[in-house]
Amino acid sequence: MKRRWINFTSVFFTAVTGFACLLLTAMVALILGNIVRHGIGHISWAFLSQAPHSGMTEGGIFPAIFGTAVLVLLMTVAVVPLGVSTAIYLQEYAPKNSRWIHVVRLAIQNLAGVPAIVFGLFGLGFFIQFVGQGLDTVFFNGKLYFGQPAILWAALTLALLTLPTVVVSTEEALRVVPPSHREVAYSLGATRWQMVRHVLLPQAVGGILTGTILAVSRGAGEVAPILFTGAAYYLPHLPTRLNHQFMELGYHVYVMATQSPDVDATLPILYATVLVLLVLTFGLNFTAIIIRSKIRRRLRGR
């Protein structure tokens, strides 16, 4: 009798945890399904390649796509060298298990936990009002040039936000390079930098790429940090200089969803914009996952 009771509770609770998984999967399917179903009908070449007009109720979202692309490109240029060299330092240069390395790791983990809106405040307070206005005072006689919201400052703010992603991914890639490879390089008379440059980095390229893609996907989806650092709802021109403002997909979704005078008229466009944003971030994430699993398989195969 007792035995049977034990079996019942065991099966019951196992089923409960399984149900949690099922529920999660169902919710994700529901969200994605809803967005795809309502969004796909409005997507066309014209929608992707035209600028919006008639108060956002007609036209496309090309400027937002363009702005997002330029934004994450600038961000990547800033974050990848920094992130990779931080990872190289942590794995190859810092004395193992030292207090300093512990502090750096802690800082990176904590940076990953800082709320996105705080990055937004920081971008405004530091990049725009301190660096930007400083540049204006020193080089432009106080004329307003860099001391205003701009794509450059938004990109740098996002770079700081995504730094932990790149560091963690690169570190993982460096860690799995077998110690024997390092020893062989040293025994052939290579300096430490030569070893890093010609032995480690070529093997870590996949990991660096994974980290970069994940950072881009994260950066393309974050809205809070760019609210005050450069995003604009509507601009007649594309950003062509570093100090221009820009339109962005996530910001576009936010404004259309909350501040549209006619929600019903903009709803199809809103759904389609959300779908484009999702396809972009998911496409990037899937690419990263595929690269990562290829690397892992290659490592296991050795």
Binding site: L24, V28, A220, G221, Y251
Partner: peptide
Amino acid sequence: VIEMLAGIPSVVLGFFAL
């Protein structure tokens, strides 16, 4: 599936909720 949920930008979740 969980990675997909993590990959949904928060502005999209906000849109969905709203």
